[in-house]
């Protein structure tokens, strides 16, 4: 749980990656999926998630679809064409970042 600050800068990448693997998702589903995948290690707060989703939508990386689910309406998010490209870029950046961090925190391991 103490790692929340480390994850903060990766929120957009996490959202994009999840949408890449799940076609379309709604806000609450994203928070729960992250909790499930990280076994509770990472909890995305709604206060951080929705501004990030709205920003990605405003930047044209996400499309929105509203559908009726049971007795209420639900707003689904899915990747646009440029969102798919941006996901690949962000994941590359993330891999590069992880490699660099690995070299810094565990130089021996990264040489092997």
């Amino acid at each position: 749980m103490g790692n929340q600050k480390l994850y903060k800068g990766s929120l957009q990448t996490i959202i994009l990656k999840l949408l890449e693997s799940n076609d379309k998702m709604y806000g609450y589903e994203i928070t729960q999926k992250v909790k499930e995948l990280t076994k509770g290690e990472l909890k995305i707060t709604e206060g951080a998630l929705y501004p990030a989703l709205h920003k990605l939508e405003a930047d044209g990386l996400l499309d929105v679809e509203v559908a009726k689910v049971g007795n209420r309406l639900r707003k689904y998010y899915k990747l646009t064409e440029s969102g798919t490209k941006e996901t690949a870029n962000k994941l590359d950046e993330m891999q590069e970042f992880l490699r660099t961090m690995q070299q810094l925190v565990n130089p021996k391991l990264s040489l092997e």
Binding site: G27, E29, R72, L73, R74, K75
Partner: peptide, 17 residues
């Protein structure tokens, strides 16, 4: 309307869970 739709869905999903 759009804000209301998303907010209600989130609150209801969280409340139910």
């Amino acid at each position: 309307n759009e804000t209301k739709i998303e907010l209600i869905d989130h609150l209801v999903s969280d409340f139910e869970a």
